[in-house]
Every structure is written in structure tokens, then in C-alpha cells.
Design a protein around this nucleic acid. Structure first.
Length: 291
DNA sequence: CGCATCCCCTGCCTGC
DNA sequence: TGCAGGCAGGGGATGC
């Protein structure tokens, strides 16, 4: 489900509730999600203070006092909600975001502030890990993660360098988390459309023969940053179940130009939006104005 | 090695 | 109305 803008939206929602609070109780309700929970997961978290909440790629990372990081991934359908005591009855959320099926509430974190953070994930593609802070950079989850597109490192030169020599389709290369971190299917499709670039062209076609950035590379890098910034400002995209932690819907989905719009006219050129499959995933694009 | 395919799981939508 | 099939925002394992 969530790509960089959705995960960042969740981070911004959770951070004020979690930072500085102690974990007074952790309720782990099943042994695994996508992967087994760490041994003694709840026990190891209880009593710890959360110093802050970061994001790297599509991962949320809680800095714990002491030496550990709590790493959380939302998979396709994971979400968090914040419940406050006393304001809406026994444990009910302040604002409406209770999932339809609380059977998929898999973890609850009780905080010293009285708030409760609940993780819900119907498909259970998400996971949580505890890793030593000193292992962060070298950890298997993070050692091969590419550059952060909003961290100032994404420009035409970086794109050209990353994509030089790659025969993979541009769409696939943009989805590769070891090259650029945090892009997913929606924002890749939307960025390519805005840049007028075909998802089918070879990734290497963004690099000049001397390895430098083509004009297309410079344009695409700028557009990716713009699209992500717009989406973060909009609170992400709400298709099925993504919501902000306060229950509000993101609204970037109203800005989609191609994603989910098969057979509809392209607002740019009047062509028809097509849907194809690349690397097993749907690609939406306009054959008229994306070259 | 780089790239494509399959698969994990549940829910929702479509068409019969 | 029920049921089968297809599809979904991610990404790890496998095989060519």
C-alpha cells in the first residue's frame, strides 16, 4: 500500500504522539506478520522510551533509549491509529479511523501519555524488527537501500549515474529500492506521465553516452521530487485503506493523471490511458504523450 | 550478474 | 444472491 508519501504521512502523525513517551505495555497478538516477530518482542520494548520516529525508504524507525531501533514496515495494507483515553469512551479513537475489522489489529503500544498506538494489517505483508542502532547502516534491510528522493540527492546526474548501462525498463528501474528509495507503483506511473517519458524505454536511455545526465534525466528527477512533495503535502493518496493516523483521508488520488485510469482520456494530449504489465505489476501510461 | 516470475495474505470488485 | 476470478500501494526468493 504505502509509498514514500503515505509512510511519511504516517510518520508525521505518529511522531508527536510517540516521541518522548515511554512504552508502558506492548500487546503482540500473533507470532508473525510477514516475518516472525523478534524473540521476546513485547518484553524487550516495555519500559523503553521512544526518542523519535524517522523514515528511511518505506520504513518507519523508532529510536529507542538504549541501543535499539524498532523498524516497522507497512507492507501493502498496514496502518496505525492513535487511540486516546477518556475522550471517546473505553479505548475508542478520538477520530474515526477504526478499521472495519479489528481482528487485524496485530500490535498495540500503550504509552506513558495514556495514548495507545494500534497497528492493523489485513494482508500481513508488513513486519516489525528490533535491530541494534550500531548495525543500522550495515543491516540487510538497509545496506542496499538507494538514495532518498527528498533528501537533496536526487538530480539528473544521480539518475544518469544510477541508470547507466541498465537494460531494464525505466518503470522497473524506478521501482528498484536499491537505486531510489520509496517510490512505488503510483508515484512512478504519475511521475513518468508528467515527464512525458515512456515506462517501456530502457533505463539507460536517461544517461548520455559519456554517463552524464540527459535533459530527460534532469526533468524526470525534478518531477519526481515535485510529485512526492505534492503528495506529502496532500497527506498521501487514499485508495482503499490508507488514512492518516488521525483518520483523515489523504487526497493526492484526485491528482492522478494515469494511475487507475485505464481507457480514460489523457488530460495532456487526449490520448487514451493504457494499462500494461511490467515485472508483474500494472503500469498505467499514455501512449500518446509518453515517449 | 541483471532481470522476470512467482508468491506471501486478505478484501473488494466484477462478471456470470 | 452467491460464487469464481482478477486485482491491489511491497518486496523477498528463485530461476533463467
Amino acid at each position: 500500500m504505502p509509498e514514500l508519501p503515505e509512510v511519511e504521512t504516517v510518520r508525521r502523525g505518529l511522531e508527536p504522539a510517540m516521541a518522548g513517551a515511554w512504552l508502558t505495555n506492548v500487546d503482540q497478538r500473533r507470532p508473525d506478520l510477514r516475518f516472525p516477530f523478534p524473540e521476546r518482542f513485547a518484553e524487550r520494548l516495555t519500559g523503553r522510551r521512544i526518542d523519535g520516529l524517522r523514515r528511511r525508504a518505506k520504513y518507519l524507525i523508532a529510536d529507542l533509549d538504549g541501543a535499539d531501533l524498532l523498524v516497522m514496515h507497512l507492507g501493502m495494507s498496514g496502518s496505525f491509529r492513535i487511540e486516546q483515553p477518556g475522550k471517546a469512551g473505553h479505548g475508542a479513537p478520538v477520530l474515526g479511523n477504526r478499521p472495519k475489522n479489528s481482528a487485524h489489529d496485530h500490535v498495540a503500544f500503550d504509552l506513558s501519555t495514556g495514548a495507545r498506538i494500534v497497528y492493523n494489517d489485513p494482508r500481513r505483508f508488513g513486519f516489525m524488527q528490533l535491530i541494534p542502532r550500531s548495525d543500522f547502516a550495515a543491516h540487510p534491510l538497509f545496506k542496499n537501500i538507494g538514495l532518498e528522493p527528498l533528501g537533496g540527492a536526487l538530480d539528473g546526474a544521480a539518475l544518469a549515474r544510477l541508470f547507466a548501462g541498465k537494460t531494464a525498463p525505466l518503470k522497473s528501474a524506478l521501482l528498484d529500492q536499491s537505486l531510489i528509495a520509496g517510490l512505488g507503483n503510483i508515484y512512478v506511473c504519475e511521475s513518468l506521465h508528467r515527464a512525458g517519458l515512456s515506462p517501456l524505454r530502457a533505463a539507460a536511455s536517461l544517461a548520455r553516452k559519456d554517463g552524464g545526465p540527459s535533459k530527460r534525466a534532469i526533468l524526470l528527477a525534478r518531477i519526481i521530487r515535485e510529485v512526492l512533495e505534492e503528495a506529502v503535502a496532500a497527506g498521501g493518496s487514499s485508495l482503499r485503506d490508507h488514512r492518516r493516523t488521525d483518520g483523515a483521508l489523504g487526497y493526492f488520488q484526485h491528482s492522478f493523471r494515469v494511475y487507475g485510469r485505464e481507457h480514460q482520456p489523457c488530460a495532456q494530449c487526449g490520448g487514451v490511458v493504457r494499462r500494461i504489465t511490467q515485472s508483474g505489476r500494472a503500469t498505467f501510461y499514455c501512449g500518446g504523450c509518453q515517449r
